[in-house]
Structures are given as C-alpha cells and as structure tokens.
Design a protein around this nucleic acid. Structure first.
Length: 548
RNA sequence: UGCGGCGUGGAGCAGCGGUUAGCUCGCCAGGCUCAUAACCUGGAGGUCGCAGGUUCGAUUCCUGCCGCCGCAACCA
C-alpha cells in the first residue's frame, strides 16, 4: 500500500481585538468542510488555524483593558477556540503568533530573505499621529473640511488629523525601516500565475491579482521602530517585524519551520490550499509567494478567497457589511445557543456560495432551517425509523439479501457521487448540498409516496420490508454524503441503524455511498421515545422566540 | 478617477451559443397520513437591466448606456 497523500489546509489567522463574528466563522466552516472531506477521501490531512497577535492594535487593546498583551491574547485565543469547537471545526493545530515557535521561525525566515539580498534599509515616509504614536494611512486621516484624502502629502497639507486625536495634526515623518523588495518579483509571480492557473481561486480573484501585479508592485515596509510587542528583527534589535511579513509566516512556523523538529514542515509543506477572505487576496497571492521565492521555499498549491457575509436587516431589507459601528454584528455563539451548530453550518454552506458573497438574516436562517433541515432531512429521518419499528419491531430480518437500489431507480448514484466529490473538492458547497437534497433526499421522500409502505403493510409485509430496507439504505447514503457538512447529523443517521456492523462510521468515504458493503441484517438502533425518534430539528418559530 | 463585480418570475440564487430558461422559498389547487400540520402531484407567475452589434441562432459573446455594489496596500 502506498503512502496516503497529504492535504495541508489553512485558514487566515484572525486579529484578536474582538470576538469572532459569523463572517469569520463562514471561513472556518468552509475550510472545515474541506478538511473533513479530504480526511474521508483518505488524505493525511492537517488543518491549521490561529490568531494574529503581533499587532499594535492588539497591544493597545490590552492596555485599554489594563492587562499585559500576553495574558490578553491567550484569553482571546481560548475564546476563539471555544467558538470554533462549538462549531465542530476540526482543526489539528491552532497557532498564536506570540508563541516562541512562531518567533523563532519568523526570525529564521527573515534572516534567510535578508541573506538572499531581498531586504534593505531605507527611509519610510508616513503620516504620523503623535497622539496615537503610530503611522496612519491617508484613508484614515480626517480632513477638517471633510474632503477625501488620497495621498499623505495632501493630508498633511490639509491639516488632517486621525479620528482619535482631532486636535493634533498629522505630520509626515520619516524613519529608517526595512523593506522587502517585492517589486523585483513581478515577472516571477506572473510566470507562476501563468504556469499554475489553479493557484488563485476562484477565477475572478485570479484576474484581479494578475491585473494588480501587472500594474506593478511596490516594495513593502516590513519593520517598525520602537515597539516592544512583536518579533525583533534578528539583524537589528531596534526593529520589530511588521504585520503581514510576520502573519503569513504562521503557515510554516506552525509546522516547525526553522526549528529542530521540522518533521511536519517536511511532511505537509507546501500547503494544498490557504482559505482566506477576498480582502487579503493580494497578500497571499503576491507578497506571500514572493517571500517564499526569496527564501527558496516551495509555494502553496492554491489560495482560495471566499466571499463575505453581509447582514440583511429584517426590517428594512438593507444589506450591510457587519461592523461594530453599525452594531449589526451577529456572533456565532448566539446562533449555536439558540439553535445548534449543525443549523449554523447548514445555513452558511447551503445559502452562501463559498467563492461569492452571501447574506444573513434571522428570517432566512429560520426559513432555510425549517425547509431544509426540519421538513426535508429531519422528517425523512423520522419516517424512515418509525415504520420499521412500528411494523417489524425494529428488526428487518433477511434484509442483507435484499437489493436496496429500488429507491434510487432512475438515479445514477455512482455518477452523482463522482459529481459531488468534484463539487466539494472545488469548494462548491452550495451546489453540492443542493444536489444532495434534490437528487437524494427528495428521491427518498418520493420513494415513500410511490411504495406507500404504511398502506402496503396491510396486504404485503414482504414487499413492505423491501421498501423499508431501501429507505434505510437511502438514510445511509445521505449520512455519508452530508458528513463533511453536518458531522453530527451524519453520525446520528448512521447510528440509527446498525450500519456500523458492516463498516465503521469513521472509515466511510464518499465512494461508499454508491455501494452498500455486505453486513448483517438491519435493525433500528436509534434512541426511541414511545416507539418514535425525537425530532432532530424541531421547527423554528421566530415569532415565538423571546428576542433577536 | 482607475480596476472589478452584479442586474434572470414576489424573495434568494443556477444557467452561460442552440430542444418548451432551471432550483429553493412564497402563492393557488389537488392527493396522502408513516412522519416534525411534515410528504407527494399539478398550476399561476419571467420580452433573462436598456440599446445596438457578431451569428443560421444570444439570457449566454462584443460595444455603449442606466442602476446597484465592491476594491484601490495592511478591513474575514
């Protein structure tokens, strides 16, 4: 037997200056579905997440709260992980960029780039706010006459200030910083995009980046002077590595790059896919590969930029970006507590195309839940289990000899499974789920109407049994196909009958959906109350909800 | 201003050169009762933003216009 292939998948690391919202969760769920799918496919999968802690904002936020940065970020990291676990995000590692392993790897890396001659020191010119003691961009500057400012020169001339210190005009200050010679990588980057069309996904993002790089790249400042929080530049103790150069490196420092124990790095790098938000595409598709080229490391195989989730206001119907100032942020735990993690995952994966933008409203959430989960999926589960219990005491003797393919007559299941593998493997989750619901779940519901086992039992118990065995098989198939998306529901489905006697649930792969493995006769193993299962997804009635 | 995206029945989305433009929800009418008043069948509802062009043929390709929305270097 050959070595299983590896699959290394990462998400963007988050700033821990506030708790994650549902948009952040969207990314993690999308990555998690992929990780779970690849594990099912037999790949040795490694799923990395983390927090981006070496930022000025984080240290300032900690100071506001009167705590040291380290305990602050540690506390935030545990809060983040708690949310991710509640959503069943199956990460294998969670890196905090304040950890020693990250610091060490970063220093090793920046040294390598320095030694390669791609870093030099030169003056950095920026808008400095004496109140904040930090540089601002022209965009952040507020002009006294309310004008939009495009350049830092314009901002200084207008006497603009930062929003926090309206009485202290911003001035252009120069300081010596280290710069990464990004501009010299333009040709190599373009050649790489050309040779690897799959490097940036989806297609629309790829075009964006190609245009951007064609337009020309500027060298980027990668260090700052005079900060105590962060990673020191190894060849200049007075300087601290600045945000992106540090953040991107988490993908390799988490694997032990530059440390004595770099077995994981050797095994999993290069990454198969970095899952990120569309806003940071350029850093992952231009800066990051250039950094790796400079250090002589292989480039990630692909970057997938997902869309954003916008908040649709129930009253006005207005679609807005979620933000603290508007006060329209929805926290994942709200939804998990009020409903459950499966409903959360289902909503985002089925309603928001991963590569594009999606929207969220409680109204749509309830609608999606009620129709997709309660009526369609949950109800199928109930009726599939009740009948064998009612008519055969839960034991379907002789079922192993029955061919369970009648329920899917007219459906080419093997072809469908192949199609689904392709859809899920390419992040087309909404399409995959719609296909499962339309082709498989609806087929099972229709099969009940066609065979009418509840009537058939009065005249032909043998035929009834055949119908019920078919239904059980449909449940098994559904269980396998939804496993990456709804892991808990999938497991509940699989445990409803003694399917595990034929094949343990954790060994099931997508291809197994198309053919039933030989096994003993079927019997119902679900927990029953008065001969019935409790509804898996009780209907949501928003009007009856106390708040929202 | 530059770059990019979007505009398909009441709502949300597919489709993207070629038989009667699909799907989910909603609506209307039947059927059924195993099931979470669930499920199944049928129906009404669209000149595929507007105007040109390419083509034997365009919702699908090109151009222009209108409307909405992103991005423009550190915002998931």
């Amino acid at each position: 037997m050959s070595q299983p292939s590896t699959f290394f998948i990462t998400t963007a690391i988050d700033y821990p200056n506030s708790r994650p919202h549902i948009g952040t969760a969207f990314e993690k769920i999308g990555a998690d579905v992929q990780a779970r799918f690849r594990r099912m496919e037999g790949a040795d999968t490694y799923f990395l997440m983390g927090n981006d802690e070496n930022t000025i904002k984080v240290s300032k936020r900690a100071r506001e709260l009167g705590v040291e940065p380290q305990p602050y970020v540690d506390d935030m990291a545990s809060q983040f992980k708690e949310v991710w676990r509640a959503l069943d995000i199956s990460f294998d590692d969670f890196i905090q960029t304040s950890e020693p392993r990250h610091h060490a790897g970063c220093q090793r890396f920046i040294q390598a780039v320095f030694d390669a001659g791609d870093i030099d020191k030169r003056p950095y010119k920026g808008l400095y706010c004496e109140g904040c003691e930090e540089f601002k961009t022209a965009k952040e500057a507020v002009s006294p006459d309310g004008r939009e400012l495009k350049t830092i020169e314009e901002a200084e001339a207008a006497g603009a200030c930062c929003p926090n210190h309206p009485k202290t005009p911003l001035r252009i200050v120069e300081e010596e910083n280290y710069f990464f010679k990004l501009s010299s990588f333009q040709d190599r980057l373009l050649a790489h995009y050309e040779a690897h069309p799959e490097f940036i996904q989806p297609e629309s993002r790829r075009n964006e980046v190609v245009n951007l790089v064609k337009a020309g790249l500027q060298d980027v400042s990668i260090s700052r002077k005079g900060f105590s929080w962060g990673i020191k530049v190894p060849f200049d103790e007075e300087q601290t590595i600045y945000v992106w150069f540090d953040a991107l490196l988490n993908y390799i420092t988490a694997l032990g790059y530059g440390s004595a124990d770099d077995a994981k790095f050797r095994r999993y790098w290069p990454a198969d896919v970095h899952v990120i938000g569309k806003d940071i595409t350029r850093f992952h598709c231009a800066l990051w590969p250039a950094m790796l080229m400079s250090a002589g490391l292989p480039l990630p195989k692909s970057v997938f930029a997902h869309g954003f989730v916008y908040r649709k206001d129930e009253g006005s119907g207005v679609l807005q970006k979620m933000s603290k100032s508007i006060g329209n942020i929805v926290e994942p735990m709200d939804l998990v507590r009020r409903f459950n993690s499966e409903a959360f995952r289902y909503y985002f994966m089925s309603q928001c195309p991963f590569g594009g933008d999606g929207e969220f409203s409680f109204e749509r959430f309830a609608e999606t839940y009620n129709t997709g989960l309660a009526n369609s999926l949950g109800n199928l589960y109930s009726r599939t289990i009740t009948m064998p219990v009612k008519y055969f005491g839960g034991v379907l003797e002789g079922s192993s000899a029955i061919d369970p393919t009648a329920w899917r007559a007219g459906l080419d299941l093997p072809a469908l499974v192949e199609e689904l593998r392709s859809l899920v493997g390419s992040f087309q989750y909404a399409g995959a789920l719609q296909t499962i619901w339309l082709q498989v779940i609806d087929a099972a519901n229709r099969y009940i109407e066609a065979t009418r086992p509840f009537a058939l039992i009065k005249t032909d118990p043998a035929a009834t049994k055949i119908a019920l065995v078919n239904l059980a098989e449909a449940l098994r198939v559904v269980s396998i196909l939804i496993k990456p998306f709804l892991p808990r529901t999938a497991e509940t489905f699989y445990a409803a009958f003694n399917f595990a006697d034929a094949q343990p649930f954790d060994r099931v792969c997508f291809a197994d959906a198309a053919s039933r493995p030989p096994g003993p006769d079927l019997r119902v193993t679900a927990a029953l109350v008065d001969g019935k299962v409790a509804p898996l997804f009780p209907k949501i009635d928003l009007k009856a909800e106390p708040s929202s």
